[in-house]
Simulated scan of single mutants.
Amino acid sequence: MSAACRAPRSPNRSLRRSDRSRRGRATLLAAGAAALALTLSACGSGGTSGGSGKTNFITSKDGISTAEKGDRHDAPAIDGETLDGEKLSIDDYKGKVVVLNVWGSWCPPCRAEAPNFKKVSAATKDDVQFVGINARDPEKGPAISFEKDYGIGYPSLYDPMGRLMLRFPKGTLNPQFIPSTVVIDRDGKIAARSQQPLNEEKLRKMVDPLIAEK
């Protein structure tokens, strides 16, 4: 089972007492089973990911998926407002490797991996631009405090509804969990993905080969 965590439920999704009928419970059980099946499928792959032969990327035993240079898809437009209120687009970083880390202040695995992202971002700043995607935080305050607590110096797009993740085409190395990390090569193509919290070694494993692609 993946160490990725799910976003907290928003208040307006709670069930009314009058709706807790036998039919409602059955529907919830069916939905839960479907969600569990999706999670197991996403976390259990170890060879050719996706199982359809159309994905053209490989998932290693450590959960890192990579695509060969000729098989990579164009990254979608990822832009918006940062936690600091500035406008940001990853198109501004063409020519550099871009690391996109999807995180939330409410997510324990995100806190566990944050020091590793701080360290690697500082060590690779000449070749790599790190960009966070802060997802499912209803307010900016906790996310801003998170960045201060861990000394995160790179910007994060504020995405309270999690919509930026949906811009990635299905069947590509699209992020599906929080935390997720996607690495985009110098040509703006999706090159690698992890859907688990990363230590320093695994993060460098994703980034270093793309730095070398000059």
Rank of each mutant, 00 (worst) to 15 (best):
V131Q: 08
P115E: 01
P142M: 10
D91Y: 12
G53N: 04
T66R: 11
L157K: 08
K119A: 14
S145R: 14
I64Y: 04
K94P: 15
R136D: 14
A123D: 07
F117S: 02
G51R: 03
K87H: 13
A135N: 11
C43G: 14
D149E: 15
W106H: 05
D91I: 08
A123V: 08
G153Q: 09
Q129V: 12
A143M: 10
D92F: 05
P138W: 14
K87M: 11
D71W: 13
M161Y: 13
F57S: 01
T124L: 04
I64L: 02
E86V: 10
T66N: 00
D91P: 06
A75C: 09
P76L: 00
K125N: 11
G51D: 11
K140M: 14
E68V: 14
T59S: 02
G70E: 03
K87E: 15
I144R: 11
A112K: 06
G141Y: 15
Y150S: 03
K118R: 15
R72V: 13
V102M: 14
K87N: 13
G50L: 02
A123P: 01
K118L: 10
M161F: 13
N116E: 06
T66P: 01
D159K: 15
G50K: 02
W106C: 10
T82S: 01
A123N: 07
G51K: 00
S156R: 12
K148D: 13
F117W: 08
W103E: 05
V102F: 15
N101H: 08
N134Y: 08
V99E: 07
V97N: 03
P76Y: 03
I90D: 09
Y154K: 06
P115H: 00
Y150F: 15
F117C: 05
K119H: 07
G80E: 14
I90A: 04
S145D: 15
E81G: 10
D149S: 11
A114F: 00
E147T: 10
D62G: 04
R136P: 01
A112N: 00
N116P: 00
G151W: 04
P155Q: 09
G63Y: 05
G151A: 06
L157V: 08
S49Q: 03
K94V: 12
I144C: 05
Y150R: 02
C43L: 07
D159R: 12
E68C: 09
A75F: 12
V120R: 01
T59P: 00
S49R: 07
T82N: 02
S145E: 15
K61M: 02
I64H: 02
K119D: 13
S45L: 04
D84A: 15
T82A: 01
E113H: 00
D137K: 03
V99Y: 03
F117M: 15
S105W: 08
T59Y: 00
Y150M: 05
T124S: 01
D91M: 14
W106A: 01
A122Q: 11
